[in-house]
Amino acid sequence: MAGNGSFWVQIMPAILFLQLLFRAVGTDGASSFSFANDCQYPVWVGVLSGATSPPLARSGFYLPPSGTFQLAAPSSGSWSGTFWARTGCAVDSSTGRFSCATADCGSGDVACNGRGPSPPVTLAEITLASPGSGGQDFYDVSLVDGFNVPVRLSPSGGSAGECRAVACAGDVNAACPSDLRVVVAGSGGVVACRSACDAYRSARYCCTGEYGSPAACGPTNYSQVFKTACPAAYSYAYDDASSTFTCVGASNYDVTFCPRT
């Protein structure tokens, strides 16, 4: 017994040191993504991990009105990815193939299986720092590929003065120029608003070719429509200054479709 007591006395300082070191290094970092559907209609969430990031447990799921869902974030390493809402989805009775009226990922299934969305689509984009690194997360709401559903992206916890919510909560479809509107038969109106890049494929609107730099590619009359409706969201490719947000130490990111505020 005496020997055992001496053993614990000897190793206690080492245990305390490790505990303090663990706290100093920290395990801070987003542990989950939470989703909520405040729309009056169902959405089918799409999930796409970045090319060098591990996939999450689900790459697509159904979210009814007032529905919620949660996905775990990777427990180690940095991670980047994109979330979006698909609308007007159904299974073709003759082929059994699943497809959506807006933001379809082309997988033929509720799961997107590594496929991204077809524009127009509102995107919630996140890059997480490695847990415990003390690095910054970067996040934004993007209308670069157009608009289909209002979205808010909000971190929980994190550094004071940072970590603010960002949203495109306005109805961009109501302000959409006539040449960018997407109307689906039987939908009762405009279901999405295309970007000028998607509609016209010009270097000027897509910020490519001779316009492929921030100095050469500024806002256009089309992108200003998006910016007026959603000042905090990306309205074109180089809209970084007012549209990229950072956070250190967030524990969770909330993605809300059709946010009420």
Rank of each mutant, 00 (worst) to 15 (best):
G5Q: 12
Q10D: 11
I11P: 00
A14I: 13
A14E: 08
L18N: 00
L20V: 12
F22H: 14
G26A: 00
G29T: 01
S31M: 04
C39N: 09
Q40R: 08
Y41G: 03
L48C: 00
L56V: 11
A57F: 01
S59E: 05
F61M: 07
Y62C: 03
P65C: 07
S66C: 00
G67Y: 02
G77L: 01
F83V: 05
A90S: 15
R97G: 04
R97Y: 05
C100E: 10
C100Q: 11
C100N: 11
A101G: 05
G106S: 04
G108I: 05
A111N: 13
G114A: 07
P117E: 09
G132S: 02
S133K: 01
D137T: 06
F138G: 01
S142P: 13
S142Y: 12
D145F: 06
N148K: 12
S156Y: 00
S159F: 08
S159W: 05
V172E: 08
A174N: 07
P177R: 08
S178F: 06
D179Q: 14
G186P: 13
S187M: 04
V191W: 10
A192T: 11
R201C: 00
C217M: 03
S223Y: 14
Y234M: 05
D240R: 06
S243H: 04
F245T: 04
F245I: 06
F257R: 00
